[in-house]
Design a protein around this nucleic acid. Structure first.
Length: 221
DNA sequence: AATGGGTCCAACCGCACCGCA
DNA sequence: ATGCGGTGCGGTTGGACCCAT
């Protein structure tokens, strides 16, 4: 279901994330937060670009993500908001705690698009509940929004297969350890695709000593 | 059992936006 | 005013899985 891992010409790993990479990313973000996605992979020991790390974290690894089937209520919210705002997936995602824009976008294209031709999905037994939700959306959307962003709340969705985390402070920019970011040599432009590794072209094997991955200090800086 | 088309979703890519110097 | 770095968003794609034949 995912793309096979490979290295591009710059030595950046692309494709599916391994469990070890996930662990590294989680461990780093738990400790340092993510004050700078561009440089994060270097410090986390990941042969990924910053953009890939951000995407992986936001769409898959961050806590309290809700995975699995959508409820009828969620479907209705998506339909209503899409009707109002179009393909503003991030905006829609704000109203669905635990859902990501990417996930909603996928769900729309695979499940809901067919209903979008002027009709909403059929009425359901929870219509009254939906009505109140819709009112909340069209009226005081702030209420829902606030709940959606409180990712450090006690709400747990871990009945699904998402990674489970202990409480996690996502905003640690004040963390003193982050000061090390500033001491780095400058990076050249083209942030998202710029390899964090040096140009003196190590082989792929050097980047990912798979046999020792996770058991030894990883990278060579 | 083989296979071919459809579905689904994680991940990639390009671009727009924002803040700052 | 402008250029640049960092970030976020939306569209697209790759490929595993599912299912009908």
């Amino acid at each position: 279901m995912v793309r096979a891992p490979y290295f591009d010409k710059n030595g950046i790993k692309k494709g599916a994330w391994s469990e070890e990479e996930d662990k590294r990313l989680i461990a780093y973000v738990e400790t340092h937060g993510y004050p700078n996605w561009r440089q994060l992979p270097k410090f986390a020991g990941l042969a990924r670009c910053g953009k890939s790390c951000r995407l992986r974290w936001m769409n898959y690894l961050r806590p309290n993500l809700k995975r699995g089937n959508y409820t009828q209520k969620e479907e209705q919210i998506i339909m209503d908001l899409h009707k109002k705002h179009g393909n503003k997936w991030s905006m829609i995602a704000e109203h669905l705690p635990g859902r990501t824009d990417n996930e909603i976008k996928n769900y729309w294209h695979s499940h809901l698009k067919k209903f979008s031709k002027g009709n909403q999905i059929e009425n359901t037994p929870c219509d009254e509940e939906l009505k109140s939700v819709n009112e909340a959306i069209s009226g005081d959307s702030h209420h829902i929004l606030e709940s959606s962003v409180s990712i450090s709340s006690e709400t747990s969705y871990n009945e699904d297969n998402s990674p489970s985390f202990s409480s996690l402070n996502l905003c640690k920019e004040e963390d003193s350890s982050v000061a090390s970011w500033e001491t780095l040599d400058g990076f050249s432009s083209n942030f998202w695709t710029q390899p964090f590794i040096s140009e003196n072209a190590l082989s792929d094997q050097d980047y990912f000593p798979i046999s020792s991955f996770g058991t030894e200090p990883f990278f060579l800086w």
